[in-house]
Amino acid sequence: MKHLVFLLLLSSVCFFALSKVVDNFKECEEFFLDDKPPVFTPPAGVSVKPICQCLQDNNDKQIYLYATLYSTTWKIPVYSAYVFRKSKSIGRCDTWYIEPQLEDSRDSGDSEQCMGPQGSAVKTSSNQALNSDYKDSNNYHKGHLYPVLHTDNHLSMLATSTLTNAAPQDSDFNTNEWLEHERVVINNLQSCDKAYVVTGVVPDMQAPKLNNRVYVSKYYWRATCCLKNNQYTGQGYYGLDNNNQVKKLTIKDLQDFLKNVYQITFFPSVPTSNTEAKKPRIDKACN
């Protein structure tokens, strides 16, 4: 059977939405500093799946746009990683996709690994969130990890609207302080020669799940690493999902803060202090 596609018309340009659930990030390692993804140790009993998020355009060219580590246990992403490019004013289209490959019941005849539109391939799910989980939820938005605001073209914008790149986010926090934070990050990274970003979610283990299935967010966090004038500098951020405040801290302090939930090293190829960076070519100090 021909792979499932969804034709989306935007500004007279047609694209087919795709992604790949993979064994590792080898096909999309370009979105990590030095091609090395964060070192993540999930808590006991928590399953995760790497996803290379991509689009196939109307010329059948497959283009990778970012990477996501998705928890089929929590039914939210652990993180999405992307290369920040100078943002432009991009129109938004909220057509949300789901990931048929995450379901054991997917059509075994599908040779392509494709992202699908809501209501087509997957009507029920044991491994991922669906639009129906957000129905009648006034308190939570689908919070992008790779946000539309950080995209620089229509392809990237379209690819961000997949539920594997979103988690339930407090509506006020999403539209106020976290949105302002995303704008601050743009200002901080616009002058970088190159910048890598990892954005993630800490699930709230105590709060009621959305539709009794999907873990809601306790914290949103972001780690950035900017190359400028042959120097790497890093910055960490996190915000409690319901208090409209985003805190700024070092990468090391952010990693230490997250240890209460899980172990993660954002930029494993770089030291966390200037004194550890001995390479004369580049002082790799994302601290």
Results as ranks from 00 to 15, higher is better:
T73R: 02
T72P: 01
K142W: 09
F84G: 07
Y220N: 09
S11F: 08
S137D: 11
D152M: 03
R281I: 00
S111Y: 07
S108L: 15
L145S: 08
K218N: 08
F266A: 01
Y215D: 07
A67N: 06
W96A: 06
C93T: 10
I76R: 03
S161P: 00
T68W: 04
L4W: 02
Y82V: 02
T265R: 12
S191D: 15
N59Q: 13
Y134M: 08
Y146K: 07
Y97K: 06
I98L: 09
F257S: 05
A159R: 01
L254N: 08
G234S: 04
D35I: 00
Y134N: 00
Y97T: 12
K228D: 11
K61G: 09
K284V: 03
V214R: 01
G109H: 04
K248G: 00
K259M: 10
Y79C: 10
P38D: 03
P268I: 04
K2C: 13
P42A: 03
D193K: 05
V22D: 12
T160C: 14
N230L: 09
D136G: 01
P271C: 15
L189Q: 05
P50G: 06
V261T: 13
L102T: 01
L8N: 08
N287F: 14
T233D: 09
V214D: 00
K259T: 14
D170C: 10
D152V: 01
V261H: 12
Y219V: 07
N174R: 05
L18G: 09
H141S: 15
C286M: 06
D60Q: 13
K247A: 07
L33V: 02
G234N: 04
N24A: 03
K88L: 06
I251V: 14
D60A: 09
G109L: 12
D204L: 04
V122K: 02
L155D: 03
V201W: 00
D204M: 03
